[in-house]
């Protein structure tokens, strides 16, 4: 079927089986490879994108579901200007190997829109679906807490 959605501000249409995973459509058809596959079953969060603003694991979403939606990927988060959470993650050392990083940025950006000055506990709750094996999360939490606090600059 033809699926039409807005991806990172541009209208796109894809001819695809309706049950194709959004993650595959993004990576294979649209060549947006910033969203990563860590488990393929919605546990690791490396494939997190935002659909109409909400953070979602794109490996669990049949592409037909995003017809008519706004989809934002990591490529769209930092464009045209770097998002505050990206800058903060850089300054606080919240990214190491980087494979979980796009997903963490998407979840964190969604949190910061709702709650610009979250507590550490709120950040940990919001990121509980994004597994990271490198950082131990402390610097990620510090970065998200500090992103809009002026601590990043």
């Amino acid at each position: 079927m033809i699926v039409r959605f807005n991806c990172n501000g541009s209208d796109v249409q894809v001819d695809t089986p309706p049950m194709a995973r959004l993650l595959d459509v993004l990576r294979e058809d649209l060549r947006l490879v910033g969203s990563k596959e860590g488990c393929g079953e919605g546990e690791c969060g490396a494939c997190t994108v935002r659909i109409d603003g909400a953070p979602v694991m794109s490996c669990l979403v049949p592409v037909a579901q995003v017809d008519g939606c706004r989809v934002q990927t990591i490529e769209g988060l930092g464009s045209p200007a770097t998002h505050a959470v990206q800058t903060a993650m850089l300054m606080f050392g919240g990214a190491q190997c980087g494979i979980c990083t796009p997903g963490i940025c998407m979840s964190a950006a969604a949190l910061l829109e709702e709650n610009p000055h979250p507590t550490a506990e709120a950040v940990r709750v919001a990121l509980a679906g994004n597994l990271c094996r490198c950082t131990g999360y402390q610097k990620v939490v510090d970065a998200v807490c500090g992103a809009l606090a002026g601590g990043a600059s």
Binding site: L32, L90, G98
Partner: peptide, 22 residues
């Protein structure tokens, strides 16, 4: 000192290419 990591912004913006991205 702790300058930002070299590969940081590429990783944070999704530009880094991992093996399965090739």
């Amino acid at each position: 000192t702790s300058p930002p990591r070299r590969d940081g912004m590429d990783k944070l913006t999704g530009r880094s290419l991992y093996a399965d991205d090739l």
